[in-house]
């Protein structure tokens, strides 16, 4: 049994002229959760989005050991300081394995994003191998103006094997209250999990959650936007839980036409992409396509029918 706790924090670096930068103020690995500051790679839509107003720090998480194995207790704390930006990636997929005594392995992730800060968290695939017993619990707190992109993918069992017991809860809170709270349950303890209401036997599932209270640079809020049409000067979270959703703020037809994928607006400034696929390559393609649609700068594609402004 392994207990590891890692902590990562960033802050906005004092800058004279030029673009503000992000400084890594804490980088404490806790075996087997190893954190490494890494150099920027080729830009992707996500890294461009993350660095919109501040140069983003790049950190990768690497596993120092196999697993998690049953019985492991792992904890990752991420604190993104006001006005800073962080892209947190992962080196390799995670293979969840059973432990010697059948105990549950746990990964607790606590994320705090301060005002006007940005976090893109891009963990690699999680594979729930046969007989594993694992719970991941992700809690995110977003302060005013904070931006978030949270990606997750799971494969239910390696090739030719049934899925182990897998639970993953993700909860995101903003200054307006809870935005998103879902727990995916798979494996022998979850009735009907592979049936036609939950995954229909798809081997891979994933989501991307995007919260972005600021309109993209150069975007005219509401212009040609069927979602926000007629409401200039939109405020973040205009549709508060408990109040009627705005007409038209229902679906993204482009993504809705994609099989096994839905793009769901959670509030005027946040959206969820949810996808199921027979394999991880198809899953990644479905998620990436929807995310590119979400993140594309408005002025690059003026003919697009449903700019989302997220």
């Amino acid at each position: 049994m392994t207990q590891g706790s890692a902590r990562l924090a960033t802050e906005r670096a004092a800058s004279g002229a030029g673009r503000p930068r992000t400084r890594i103020s804490a980088l404490r690995s806790g075996w087997p959760l190893m954190l490494r500051a890494t150099a920027a790679l080729a830009p992707t839509p996500v890294t461009v989005w993350a660095a919109r107003s501040t140069e983003a720090a790049r950190v990768h998480l690497a596993a120092g050991a196999a697993g998690p194995l049953g019985g492991d207790r792992l904890r990752l704390e991420v604190h993104v300081g006001g006005g800073s930006a962080l892209v947190l990636g992962e080196i390799a997929p995670t293979l969840l394995l059973p432990g010697p005594h059948g105990a549950e392995s746990r990964l607790d992730v606590r994320i705090h994003v301060e005002p006007d800060a940005t976090l893109a968290w891009l963990p690699e695939l999680v594979i729930a191998s046969r007989h594993c017993r694992h719970a991941t619990d992700v809690r995110v707190v977003l302060e005013s103006g904070a931006r978030l992109l949270l990606h997750e993918e799971v494969l239910f069992g390696r090739h030719g094997e049934p899925s182990g017991r897998y639970r993953q809860r993700i909860r995101v809170e903003t200054v307006h209250g809870p935005l998103y709270d879902q727990e995916l349950n798979a494996g022998p303890d979850a009735p009907g999990w592979d049936g036609p209401a939950v995954t229909a036997g798809h081997r891979a599932a994933g989501t991307v959650l995007v919260v972005d209270p600021l309109p993209a640079a150069g975007q005219d809020p509401g212009a040609g936007d069927t979602e926000g049409g007629g409401q200039p000067g939109r405020e973040p979270h205009r549709t508060r839980p408990g109040h009627a959703p705005r007409p038209g703020s229902r679906t993204c037809p482009t993504a809705a036409r994609e099989p096994g994928t839905a793009l769901m607006r959670l509030s005027p400034d946040s959206a969820l992409v949810s996808a199921l696929a027979p394999d991880t390559t198809t899953l990644r393609r479905r998620l990436d396509r929807a995310v590119a649609h979400l993140l594309r700068p408005h002025d690059q594609d003026p003919a697009a029918p449903e700019p989302l402004g997220v």
């Binding site: 809860r169 909860r171 809870p178 709270d181 879902q182 727990e183 995916l184 349950n185 036609p196 209401a197 939950v198 995954t199 229909a200 798809h202 599932a205 989501t207 229902r250 679906t251 037809p253 809705a256 036409r257 096994g260 994928t261 839905a262 793009l263 769901m264 949810s274 996808a275 199921l276």
Partner: peptide, 21 residues
């Protein structure tokens, strides 16, 4: 309230969004 159950059904969500169109 925040600790109450939150089991997800991805396919019901996807079905609902497609159905609405």
């Amino acid at each position: 309230a925040h600790a109450l159950a939150a089991p997800a059904a991805p396919l019901l969500d996807i079905f609902a969004e497609h159905h609405a169109t």
